[in-house]
Design a binder for these strands. Structure first.
Lengths: 244, 244
DNA sequence: CAGTGGTCTAGACCACGGG
DNA sequence: CCGTGGTCTAGACCACTGG
C-alpha cells in the first residue's frame, strides 16, 4: 500500500492529497500521456482509501483537463491538443471549410531572454534561451507570426532539429525531441499596430491594425515551458465566449 | 414526497433528472435568485433519494453556474452579476484604479427586430422589439456604445421607465421593472471599423479600429432575453484567457 | 449551540467496450 | 464474457457559520 507524500498539509482533504499524488505521477512521467492509469479499484487498494475518494480525486483531474475518463475503457492521461489554440482567434476558412495551416521557420538563434520573456519563464533577463520566429500560413497566405522563447538547456536539442520539422504543430515536436510536455497555457489578447518587420511578415501595411496574443505555456508540473508573442491581422480576428 | 417529471427520459440517471427538476424550480421562480434552497437532507427526503444523489445533482448546477454553495450557510440561487462583463474586454483604469462606468441612454424606440437581432432572439424579422442605444463612460470619456434589442411585450414596461434609470446596470433593472432574470450570455468578438455614427458616439475618427461584441443573454429557462451589439475603441481592448 | 454543507467509507448494481 | 467506469444507497463524522 502506497503512502501519500508527507509534505502536503495533513489538514488537506484526503481526496486533495490523492489528487496531488496522481498529478505527481503524471508530472514525473510515470503515467504517460495517452496511456491509461490503473483502474479505480486498484488505486483505492494501493492507497488504502475508499473507491469514492479515488473517484473524487480523479474527477478533480478531469476537471483540470489533465485526464479523460471513458466508460468501459479506462482513464487516460490527456494529450494536450492545441491544434486549434491560436486559430480559435483567427478566421482561417475558405469556402466555409476550415483550412489546416502550415508553418515555416523564419529564424532560430540562441540569446538572452530579455525582461519580458524572462519574467514569464521565471528566468533572469540575461538567461540564455532559444528564440524561434515562425510564420503560419493558410492557403499560402500569411495568417500569424510567432516569436517564441524556450528555456535552455531543456530545449537545446531543438537548435539542431531540421527546420522542416517546424512545419507542423510545435508541442508534439517539443514532446518528441525535447521530452517537454505542455499541459495548459495562459493568454493575453490586445490590439496593436504592425511595426515594419511584422507588417512585412504578414504581408500587410506598416501601422495596420493587428491582434497581439501573448502566451505562456506550462508543463504538468506547473513550470513555464514556453513564452510566445503572436501577431495576426485584426481583420481576421474572431472569437466566441460563454459567460455567466 | 415529490415526484420527478415523467417527461424526461426514464433512462436518464436519477441525478440528472433531479438536476433538471431543481433547474425547473429556479426557472419557475419558486427558488428565487439570492435566496437559499432547502438543505440537502430535506431535498433527499422530499424526493426519496439518497443524499449523495442530491449532492451530485447540486454539484451539476454549481458547475453550470446556476447556484453557489457555502459551507455552514447553505446553497443559494446565483444572482447573475455581469457588473464587469463588458469591461473584462476594455481597460477602464485610471492611475491603476479601476473606474466604475456610468451609462447614458441615447435613444429608445419600438420597432422591428430585423433579421440579425430577430434571429438571435428567436423572433421573426418583423417582430416588434424595444430598441435601446446606450453610451457608457468612464471618467467622462466614452468607452462603449450599445445597441440593445428587447422582445415585446415582455419588456414593454421599460418604454415608460425614466431615462435616468438606465444609468446603472441594466440586468438588475430588467429584473426590477420587467421581472426578467438573466442567467448567462454568449458573446462573439470581432474587429471592425467605426462608421460615422459610432465614431461620433465614441469620440473617435470615422474608420478608426473598434472591437465589436455581439451578445445574446439568456434567462434561467434558456430563452433568449436580450440581444446587444457593443462597440469600443480597439486601442483599449485587452483580454486574458486560460486554455487547456 | 444547532444547522448547514464537506469529507469519507463500504458496498451493490448498471452500462459500456472490447475480446 | 470480463473488466472498466457510472450510478445509487446508507450512514458516520468533520468544519464552518451564525445566533
Amino acid at each position: 500500500m502506497l503512502h501519500l507524500p508527507d509534505a502536503p498539509d495533513q489538514r488537506l482533504p484526503l481526496y486533495q492529497r490523492l489528487k496531488d499524488a496522481f498529478a505527481g505521477r503524471i508530472a514525473q512521467g510515470e503515467w504517460r500521456p495517452g496511456a491509461a492509469i490503473p483502474p479505480e479499484g486498484e488505486l483505492a487498494a494501493e492507497y488504502g482509501v475508499a473507491l469514492g475518494t479515488v473517484r473524487k480525486a480523479i474527477e478533480g483531474l478531469v476537471q483540470e483537463g489533465l485526464i479523460d475518463r471513458r466508460q468501459g475503457r479506462g482513464t487516460f492521461v490527456r494529450k494536450a491538443d492545441f491544434t486549434n489554440a491560436l486559430f480559435r482567434f483567427f478566421r482561417h476558412t475558405q469556402d466555409g471549410q476550415p483550412m489546416r495551416p502550415t508553418g515555416r521557420l523564419l529564424a532560430r538563434r540562441t540569446g538572452k531572454a530579455g525582461t519580458r520573456a524572462g519574467q514569464a519563464l521565471g528566468l533572469s533577463a540575461d538567461a540564455q534561451v532559444l528564440w524561434l520566429t515562425r510564420l503560419r500560413l493558410v492557403a499560402g497566405e500569411p495568417l500569424v507570426v510567432d516569436d517564441i522563447a524556450l528555456p535552455l538547456p531543456a530545449f537545446a536539442v531543438l537548435a539542431d532539429v531540421p527546420p522542416a520539422d517546424f512545419g507542423g504543430l510545435l508541442y508534439p515536436l517539443y514532446e518528441r525531441a525535447a521530452a517537454q510536455m505542455v499541459a495548459r497555457a495562459r493568454e493575453h489578447i490586445a490590439f496593436a499596430r504592425a511595426d515594419a518587420v511584422t507588417a512585412k511578415r504578414l504581408g500587410i501595411g506598416e501601422g495596420e491594425p493587428v491582434i497581439a496574443i501573448e502566451r505562456i505555456a506550462f508543463g504538468y508540473d506547473g513550470a513555464a515551458l514556453e513564452w510566445r508573442l503572436s501577431y495576426g491581422s485584426a481583420e481576421r480576428f474572431s472569437y466566441d465566449i460563454e459567460i455567466r
